[in-house]
Amino acid sequence: MKGYLMLSRRSFALTGAAFGTSAALPAFARAPLGVTLPSFHRVKVGTTEVTALLDGVLALSPDYFSGVDPANMAAILESVGQDSTLETPINTFVVNTESGTYLVDAGLGGAQLFGPGLGNTLANLTAVGITPDQIDGVILTHAHPDHAEGLVDAEGKAVFPNAEIVIHEAEMKFWGDDAILAQAPDSAKGLFESARRTLGAYADRTRQVAESEVFPGLTLKHAPGHTMGHSVLHIASGDQQMMIMGDTLHNIAIHTAVPEAGFGFDTDATLAAQSRRKLLEMAAADGILTAFTHVNFPGFGKFKAKDSGFVYLPADWV
């Protein structure tokens, strides 16, 4: 992870400084100073092992979020020590079961859509001792670039030679629909190009599913709104369970305080909010361990209901 980026609705321009640089060491220092750059973290769910991989960190502007009164937004961010720079990770996950090894989302790969410092999923797979040919399936929560560009290399060829792609049928239908593409604003057409190119590299080994068990103990559940085929992965092993929630939320402070808040890349913000509330209510009621793409690394935690929103309880690093 070399840096982070500031994104706004007006621009994808790089405005963040690199994390890796530091001031000159004081004369008395015996060892170089540096920063902590975590790259992976494992937890067990029954006999299943789930490994979080840090693809990188970018920064979002609060103006990406809609439906929140500005004064309330300021209070929410102040309560958790955040300001107008919302440092936002991109996490991907390896699910290692008795039946196979599966990657949940693939990160940004070599795409420089948001600048440098991202696209570290493949390197972190290597760090945990997994090679691309050992991935049996890539389960996509949805096909936005920060989830799917890592499927292909700079030449557009498949990175995972033995993996099938598993994706909700509504997601494939949406991005492949020429009529929808024709009606899309110019600013969104690049998303269609990205989805078609990355998924096209696996055209002969893509499994489109409705809500169903996709591998033993792994069930893909439809949670539309962020995209029309956005899905979450439910993991069950013995008496333990986890839900990998993808982009169900984009900022833990904002979306727990105001679950109805919209996000700039939502296809249908109202539907996304309905899916968000339903899933968070389920997680809170059943005490389910959750994992998210855009929650502070490693992204594992639980929820409790509070007033009209929720409280997030990050899991200990154990």
Rank of each mutant, 00 (worst) to 15 (best):
Ala27Leu: 15
Ala17Asn: 15
His41Met: 00
Val68Thr: 00
Val68Leu: 01
Ala24Asp: 15
Leu14Ile: 12
Ile76Leu: 01
Ala27Val: 12
Pro89Ala: 01
Phe19Gln: 05
Ala31His: 14
Pro62Tyr: 01
Ala31Gln: 13
Leu14Glu: 14
Thr88Cys: 06
Pro89Met: 03
Phe19Lys: 00
Thr51Met: 04
Ala24Cys: 09
Val80Trp: 01
Leu54Thr: 05
Leu37Met: 09
Asp69Thr: 05
Pro62Arg: 02
Thr48Pro: 02
Ala27Tyr: 10
Asp63Thr: 01
Gly81Leu: 00
Thr88Lys: 06
Glu78Phe: 02
Asp83Asn: 07
Val45Ser: 06
Thr85His: 15
Gly56Arg: 06
Val35Tyr: 11
Lys44Ala: 11
Glu87Met: 11
Gly67Trp: 02
Asp55Tyr: 01
Tyr64Pro: 13
Ala74Arg: 12
Gly34Gln: 05
Leu37Glu: 13
Leu25Trp: 11
Ile76His: 03
Ala27Cys: 13
Glu49Trp: 06
Leu25Asp: 12
His41Asp: 02
Arg30Asn: 14
Leu37Phe: 12
Ala29Asp: 10
Val57Phe: 11
Ala17His: 12
Phe28Cys: 11
Ala18Pro: 14
Asp83Tyr: 07
Ser22Ile: 13
Val35Leu: 13
Met73Trp: 04
Leu54Phe: 06
Gly81Phe: 07
Val43Pro: 09
Ala71Cys: 02
Arg42Phe: 03
Ala23Pro: 14
Leu58Arg: 05
Pro62Asp: 08
Ser84Phe: 13
Ala75Thr: 12
Val35Ile: 10
Ala59Tyr: 03
Glu49Ala: 07
Gly67Phe: 06
Leu53Ala: 01
Val50Leu: 03
Lys44Cys: 09
Ala52Ser: 04
Gly67Ser: 04
Phe19Pro: 06
Thr36Arg: 10
Gly67Val: 03
Ala29Phe: 05
Leu37Ala: 11
Ser39Cys: 07
Gly81Glu: 03
Ser61His: 09
Ala18His: 10
Thr51Cys: 01
Asp83Arg: 03
Val68Arg: 02
Gly20Met: 14
His41Val: 01
Gly67Arg: 07
Leu14Trp: 15
Phe65Ile: 00
Val57Pro: 08
Ala17Gly: 13
Val35Lys: 11
Tyr64Val: 09
Gly20Gln: 12
Asn72Cys: 11
Thr48Leu: 04
Ala59Gly: 07
Glu49Gln: 05
Val45Tyr: 09
Leu58His: 02
Thr51Phe: 02
Val45Cys: 04
Ala24Trp: 13
Phe28Met: 15
Gly16Tyr: 03
Ser39Asp: 14
Ser22Asp: 12
Thr15Gly: 12
Phe40Gln: 08
Ser61Pro: 08
Leu60Phe: 09
Thr36Pro: 09
Ala17Val: 13
Gln82Ile: 02
Lys44Tyr: 08
Leu54Gln: 07
Phe40Ile: 08
Ala71Tyr: 08
Thr21Val: 10
His41Arg: 00
Leu14Gln: 15
Ser22Gly: 13
Thr88Met: 05
Ala29His: 05
Thr21Pro: 12
Asp63Glu: 11
Ala27Met: 02
Pro26Leu: 03
Pro26Asn: 00
Asp83Glu: 10
Ser66Ile: 07
Tyr64Asp: 14
Gly56Gln: 05
Ala52Glu: 02
Pro38Phe: 02
Ser84Val: 13
Gln82Ser: 09
Glu87Gln: 15
Glu87Ile: 10
Ala71Lys: 12
